[in-house]
Amino acid sequence: MEIIRFSDIRPERWRNGGGVTREIARHPSNGEWDWRVSIAEVGSAGEFSAFPGMERVISVIDGELLVLTVDGAEHAMEKYRPFRFSGDSASSSALPTGDIRDLNVIARTGAYKGYLSILELSKKRAHPVFGGQLAILLEGKAAVSDGGEGTSEAIELGRYDAVVGSDQNNPEILGRGFVAIVSIDPVEETV
């Protein structure tokens, strides 16, 4: 079972210098990547970095509201409501209610498709994390255990910690709060 601790991730400046991001995962792990999952801190209005040839899914995960302008059209983004747009688009933000944090899923168009869902956790029914998925604790209190027959002792998760999914002994998250489920699927070529 693999857990990525948010507290261990070093913050990096955005491509355009306008903010800070923490990269949770990428593929491949070195060099030019085909997909990336990150959490960004947005403390001032301004331009978003362009990601040509990529598709983005973004969701506010801390704070109330982000007004995202994409190719001239305004989109009011409330907490936990994912929004998909092209990384080729000119995009900028306004913060009418103050600073926010957002979760970003960016995938190379035509090679991968990224999905983002926000779910409420249950103390009674564990949520499995399958291969090709990341589960990120957004708020609340939760623990993860190995979902196999010989279940291991549950490990507490901190805010923004990520659990890497597996198709063998699926990790299972149990608790109260909200979790982001990120899925990255390869795009199958049609002949």
Rank of each mutant, 00 (worst) to 15 (best):
I4S: 03
R5K: 15
R5T: 06
F6E: 10
D8P: 01
I9C: 10
I9R: 15
P11V: 03
P11M: 13
E12H: 13
E12R: 13
E12K: 07
R13Y: 08
W14R: 02
R15M: 07
R15T: 07
R15V: 04
G17S: 11
G18V: 04
G19E: 08
R22Q: 13
H27N: 09
H27G: 03
P28R: 07
P28T: 11
P28Y: 10
G31S: 11
E32I: 14
D34Y: 09
D34V: 09
V37S: 03
S38W: 12
A40R: 00
V42C: 00
G43N: 15
F48P: 00
S49R: 01
F51L: 15
P52R: 10
G53W: 09
M54P: 00
M54H: 06
E55K: 04
E55S: 12
V57N: 08
V57Y: 02
V60K: 04
G63M: 04
G63K: 07
E64R: 15
L65D: 00
T69S: 10
T69Q: 12
T69K: 10
V70H: 02
G72F: 00
A73C: 04
A73W: 01
E74R: 05
E74H: 02
H75D: 05
A76G: 01
M77S: 02
M77I: 11
M77G: 02
F83A: 04
F83Y: 14
R84N: 05
G87S: 06
D88L: 06
S93Q: 01
S93E: 00
L95N: 03
P96K: 02
I100E: 00
R101L: 13
D102G: 11
V105F: 08
I106Y: 02
R108S: 07
R108N: 11
R108A: 11
K113N: 11
L116M: 11
L116G: 02
K123A: 14
R125A: 12
H127A: 09
H127Q: 15
P128D: 07
P128I: 08
F130W: 10
F130E: 14
G131V: 06
Q133H: 14
Q133P: 03
I136W: 05
L137I: 12
L137E: 08
L137M: 14
L138E: 02
L138P: 07
E139Y: 06
G140I: 08
A142Q: 06
V144W: 05
G148K: 01
S152K: 09
S152C: 01
A154P: 03
I155W: 04
E156W: 09
R159C: 07
Y160R: 03
Y160T: 02
D161S: 06
V164D: 03
G165K: 00
N169Y: 10
N169K: 12
P171G: 01
E172F: 02
I173A: 05
L174V: 14
G177H: 05
S183T: 13
V187M: 14
E189V: 14
T190E: 15
